[in-house]
Design a protein around this nucleic acid. Structure first.
Lengths: 161, 161
DNA sequence: TTTGATATGTTATAAGATAACATTGCGTTT
DNA sequence: AAACGCAATGTTATCTTATAACATATCAAA
């Protein structure tokens, strides 16, 4: 994202929001789940499940080494998805933190193929246009996946800086 | 799709269109590629690469059994994707025939979670709304993935008939 | 402090996809 | 016809992504 950007803010904000949301809803944001969320938030690039797995594998919480297997990560991600704290990018088989987990979620994603950064769009008009188009076809949508691949503003402006 | 629907028409039409398109463009629609296209068109449900693989594995063209490995299928699908003859459904890791390979392609898909049928939408207004939304974010889209999961008209109307 | 539910650990395997190299088939050049 | 070049397909191995099935641990409530 912007070249001056304290990413720690993003992470902390996301973790705080998650704590609030979960304590409100009664969902259990366990240390593992919280840690997975934090790992997903390490950047604004999407993160694969096995990347999270590898990162967890490096850690020794409370002294003892962790030795997680895939289901550990997938279950945590599943929980985070269910809470709306992360999204899954279908075109990448990867996950990304949701910057506004409180809002109603219909994921619209801008994926830059230069820098890999993913921005989440919340554009009601897109949602409206899609619903209208679906309705004309007699279709009742329940879930929407919109992923645009292209060039983000930074990469279009400052070439490679 | 509709309860009276001669699917052979769909298949034949798709194969004819493919022949025309390829002979016009010089692309080589080989027997294998043509057969894979035909297999993808067996239904209006999306088909996985390994389903195609298994179907090919049943066959004995010219007497000799075929014994295809995954790359055989993936390469054929890659070719068909490049020609715009099939689309890939990212949310399903599956493939579906394109009903209008001549038109410009921005895939918009309606996936029914009752019957599994996929309908391709070509709604310019959705495209326009998406482009406008992206542009407002300073994003220059190159490829769009739009997949809606929900209930199709048939499943909403005639329950399960 | 037993119980029941939820979370995590563990083992194994399924499902989807690609890398790298070998072979074949076919039209062109010599 | 022999040699060449190229595109397509075959073949082997491996990689990535994801889940099933069952064991153990943790925690909160009764």
């Amino acid at each position: 994202m912007g070249r001056t950007h304290d990413h720690r803010h993003c992470i902390d904000g996301a973790l705080d929001a998650a704590e609030r949301l979960c304590s409100r809803s009664g969902a259990r944001l366990t240390p593992l789940r919280r840690r997975v969320l934090e790992l997903v938030w390490q950047s604004h690039q999407p993160v694969g499940a096995y990347q999270v797995l590898a990162a967890l594998g490096q850690e020794t919480p409370g002294g003892r080494p962790r030795n997680p297997a895939p289901p550990t990560v997938y279950r945590a991600l599943e929980f985070l998805l269910a809470q709306g704290l992360v999204h899954r990018l279908e075109s990448r088989n990867a996950y990304i933190g949701c910057p506004h987990p409180d809002l109603d979620h219909a994921g619209q994603f801008l994926i830059c193929h230069e820098c890999g950064t993913v921005t989440e769009l919340v554009d009601p008009e897109i949602g409206a246009a899609v619903r209208r188009g679906a309705q004309e076809a007699g279709f009742r949508p329940a879930r929407m996946t919109l992923e645009l691949e292209g060039t983000c503003r930074q990469c279009a402006d400052g070439p490679r800086a």
